[in-house]
Design a protein around this nucleic acid. Structure first.
Lengths: 230, 230
DNA sequence: TCAAAAGTGTTAGAAATACACCCATGA
DNA sequence: TCATGGGTGTATTTCTAACACTTTTGA
């Protein structure tokens, strides 16, 4: 039992927000202390001794931005010995997903500035956080084929086109609207809502849908393998 | 910067070995010290202050069993505050894959007993290691659909039936031999070897194949998505 | 009436599935 | 010659992919 081990551990989150107008945005906070002072980093920080890791992530996101991710999943731990100049610091990295309406940031006690940045136009990043963001997107790209994570990034009621644009953004290729609708409807994952989209900037108003979680659970029970997107 | 953080970190591995006769086996080592003395646990231990995480895993596996996994991948970090009675200990869990010939164990300095156990007949496990093993298999089940990890569990030259039985074991369902061969050959992942399997216990000798890594890399470059098994 | 986005169906090709008999070998 | 496991082809169905015009609305 090593009394001599001295490794610290942070819990950090790549919190993502999507809208078809702005694309995928990531939540960053500006560092106000060294190391990497004034660079931008992921919300996160040291885990408390008796605190569950997920709780630490939620706490840090709240403290730095006032937000709460409605989906949170650990995806990898970054542990290169030289990734932090202060000494050995492991980073348990998470993906957080949040609805597009979560735009208003309330920087907390730390007085740190927080901002949404387009994932494809990142500022100078602290530590290895650019790598962490890239890894988070790779992870999401794999998970979103089979898991209904897309719906965590959309409003409760959304037009199919928004879902489609999210997949187009993530996979970097155009998606055939007709085939996409066919597939998603055949799976039965969408429940038609009464309303239509009230204020399209222009064009025909879109039918709104919500994600049918029960239907997905049903599918998952009987089919071992569900492909939402190919 | 929390001088008061006191969290220790271990690197542990679920090292797996497969043969059609025995099924999937996991490498365990018997604890010789408290806590959980005399229960079985995953090979692993505390990371050194300046040691890369993967190096720590390899070192622990070697020290406890004399083996070296030919594939190693981190899959999750377990961090429940109460998972270790000694205090807060995070476990960065890995999957290790090893060839079926790696049967001989050389317990090292720690004098710990090490053994291969069938994954489906585990002894009483230390800590949350039963959960860790279950999570490793879930992870493997997802990864093996799209990544050529199966070949890390087979000899360099193997009959198709061995590959097929590996998939059957992992997904818990029978696989149609003809359709399986068709699919795997259409992908072009197998290179036919000169030899046939020399000593089948009975029956017609099987053609041997090796995994064609270059072909897989080629595929991965042009196709964004490769499905090895559905 | 125009611009903009939404909605929708058919066809051809590819892939997945289901299914059964013969072959090569050792005992 | 028998028992055992290896090797193989075809027909059916399902899924995927390609493709363009009409509808609804606000300006």
């Amino acid at each position: 039992m090593p009394v001599h081990q001295h490794i610290r551990v942070t819990a950090d989150a790549v919190v993502l927000r999507f809208s078809s107008k702005e694309g995928m945005m990531v939540l960053l906070s500006k560092r106000s202390i060294p190391p990497h002072i004034f660079k931008w980093g992921l919300p996160g920080g040291f885990i408390r001794n008796d605190e569950p890791v997920e709780d630490a992530v939620h706490r840090e996101i709240r403290d730095e931005t006032g937000l709460r991710a409605n989906y949170l999943e650990q995806f990898r731990t970054f542990g290169a010995p030289d990734r932090d100049p202060r000494g050995r610091v492991l980073c348990v990295a998470h993906i957080g997903l949040i609805k597009p309406t979560a735009t208003k940031l309330i920087p907390g006690a730390g007085n740190k500035e927080a901002r949404w940045y387009p994932v494809r136009e990142l500022p100078q990043m602290a530590f290895d956080h650019a790598t962490v963001i890239a890894a988070a997107l790779d992870h999401l790209r794999i998970r979103m084929r089979n898991e209904p994570l897309a719906f965590e990034l959309l409003e409760a009621k959304f037009p199919v086109s928004e879902l489609e644009k999210l997949y187009e953004w993530l996979y970097g290729r155009p998606v055939d609207r007709r085939n996409f609708q066919k597939k998603i409807h055949n799976l039965g994952l969408l429940t038609t809502q009464q309303e239509k989209l009230k204020h399209p900037l222009q064009g025909r108003p879109a039918q709104l849908y919500s994600f049918n979680q029960e239907r997905f659970n049903e599918l998952k029970e009987k089919e071992e393998y569900i492909e939402i997107f190919s």
